[in-house]
């Protein structure tokens, strides 16, 4: 018997799952039984992290953000020249990957660099760590 907490809803039932039959007890509703069995058979998680932005550049070269020049169309005048743009690009796996692969995924993420322009959803690492998940950007970098 393994004891886990169901995280499907805020109630947080304390489940007991049989390691062999995957039978679940302690669940107040059927969703807990599904969660409990999956969590023991093959737990999966989404991994989020950041990627180093190559040649982040300075504000004299590129507008600081899409927001601040959206009305004027000019390169952003509101940041002193030389200020560093975004240093990190946030990323995520586009689907949950096996829990045991989390650190392998992190190691791959830490090896890549991102070069703007980048759009939300752009793939940075396909099939990360041999899973069927891709590492994708979660922010636009113009």
């Amino acid at each position: 018997m393994k004891e886990i907490i169901c995280i499907t809803c805020p109630k947080g039932c304390h489940l007991k799952v049989d390691e062999e039959t995957f039978a679940v007890t302690g669940n107040a509703c059927p969703r807990g039984a599904v969660y409990g069995a999956n969590e023991l058979r093959s737990p999966v998680r989404v991994v989020t992290s950041t990627v180093i932005v190559e040649d982040a550049g300075t504000s004299s070269a590129r507008p600081q953000t899409p927001d601040c020049d959206s009305r004027t169309g000019n390169a952003c005048p509101c940041k002193p020249a030389g200020a560093v743009l975004a240093r990190r690009l946030p990323v995520k796996t586009d689907r949950p990957i096996p829990k045991g692969k989390m650190f392998e995924v992190m190691a791959e993420i830490n090896r890549v660099r991102a070069t703007p322009p980048i759009k939300v959803g752009d793939v940075l690492i396909p099939h990360v760590a041999g899973t069927d998940g891709n590492v994708v950007a979660t922010k636009n970098l113009p």
Binding site: V46, T48, S49, T50, Q64, T65, D67, C68, C78, K79, P90, V91, K92, T138, K139
Partner: peptide, 14 residues
């Protein structure tokens, strides 16, 4: 701040 989005810009988790 230098961009819109508030505190969400640093909350990179899902």
């Amino acid at each position: 701040d230098n961009q819109a989005g508030g505190i969400l810009n640093q909350c990179i988790h899902n």
